[in-house]
Design a binder for these strands. Structure first.
Lengths: 231, 231
DNA sequence: AAGAACAATTGATAAATATCAATATGGTTT
DNA sequence: AAACCATATTGATATTTATCAATTGTTCTT
């Protein structure tokens, strides 16, 4: 199995989870022995909501979307996963079920790491455990923030937030490919796909954001931030 | 200072945090030495969003509301805190600032416990640390669920959720005092206070819930659950 | 008990958002 | 290049929700 891996070892991996810095050489080796890599094509499901949390995931290449499958077939997109981020929902510590689904957007390489090993490491290494608490806490803060924004802002503010999220957190650039469909953008900002189109058009007419169906260029970031803040 | 405390010690406390069961006698004593009790009158602020997270809180009596102060004076009510629950936002592990405010609804007794001590205990006692991760994870799951519901359901479904939350999680009874104002109920369900009134009236007209300004009686729970599920 | 202050209620209306149906566009397959 | 598919776009309309203004009820104070 190790022969199939693209990445030589966790010790030398350049895109490993930051918090693995707290692990000793031995612990990293243990990790390395209990992982395997897989590749996914665009659109393929990497993690299915409700399935057992046997593994945590770490992507080494590509982008994927994390989404909750709500009732009546409606999805809610939590965010974009990229290399270096832990993919393991809160269900792992509650009911041992994945609390969200993850689907590849681009071609993706990912490491599967046994949750049992993962939990064992948190037990043995308190610095590592604390860093996990930090990671979870950061996500909780982001979620709180997200929820308040979704609930208190109008459509243009919500869409501005999403565009800024891609620029600042995902691509670190104000020009980027819009990897989500209009429908997905709607699922992320709680609006109908037609409304996404209309608000994007408004942004374009006011010279804030240029967009075509697959590209975004933020032209006036200050104004976009203002739109986000004014709700 | 110990003389001011109503509760004799953490060891014998009947309403202490469940996860303290993982602590040893010594650790409980350490906890006990580093706590102090306070009482709050209805309406008083117990924790202010943005203030330093020097202490975690545990209520021994009363009810309070946990809320995020959003932009432009709009609040968002996260939930109701009751005895036995840890009150410590994710900010404690991120920026050492309280990420939400907490205000007493009824008369409240609460213990303040030093966050430093709290963190020290998670470092020394891995079972305790894991139980904290579990606690945080449960809250994260609830938040995810909440967010999806708020975003995908219409007003009647959201209000039904809130009424069921009070019945099942807070009061464990289908008849209870509505301790929140209509405005607060609106801040919790993302709707205007006038709409809360109107939907409650609808519920009453269809025989699902009886309500006056300070009381709720769930008359047809199945139907209320249905309303919640149908969005 | 009168009055002040605040919360709840109601009705009318405006604003925000979703839905529906039709058309356009772009990329793929054949 | 024609046909096909999925997605994007547009316009018209319906639905949902918020806002405003006025009134009623409640609680607290004096």
């Amino acid at each position: 199995m190790a022969g199939l891996n693209l990445i030589k070892s966790c010790e030398s991996c350049s895109c490993r989870w930051m918090n693995f810095r707290h692990l000793t050489k031995n612990e990293l080796q243990l990790l390395n022995l209990n992982r395997y890599e897989a590749t996914f094509k665009p659109g393929e499901i990497m993690v299915k909501q409700g399935s057992p949390t046997s593994n945590a995931l770490f992507m080494s290449a590509g982008l994927s979307k994390i989404y909750i499958e709500g009732s009546r077939g409606k999805n809610f997109i939590l965010g974009i996963a990229s290399p270096g981020k832990l993919i393991l929902g809160p269900g792992a510590y509650v009911n041992s079920r994945h609390s969200y689904s993850v689907a590849a957007i681009t071609a993706v390489n990912a490491c599967f790491i046994s949750v049992d090993i993962f939990k064992q490491l948190t037990k043995e290494n308190s610095a590592f455990a604390e860093s996990l608490i930090e990671d979870i806490s950061i996500k909780a803060l982001e979620t709180h923030n997200r929820m308040v924004n979704l609930v208190q802002k109008r459509m243009s503010g919500r869409l501005a937030d999403a565009l800024l999220y891609f620029a600042d957190d995902v691509f670190k650039s104000d020009n980027y490919d819009m990897i989500l469909s209009r429908q997905d953008l709607g699922d992320m900002t709680s609006m109908a796909k037609e409304c996404v189109v209309r608000i994007l058009k408004e942004f374009e007419e006011s010279g804030v954001v240029y967009s075509n169906s697959s590209t975004i260029k933020i032209l006036d970031k200050e104004k976009l931030v203002q739109i986000s803040e004014n709700g």
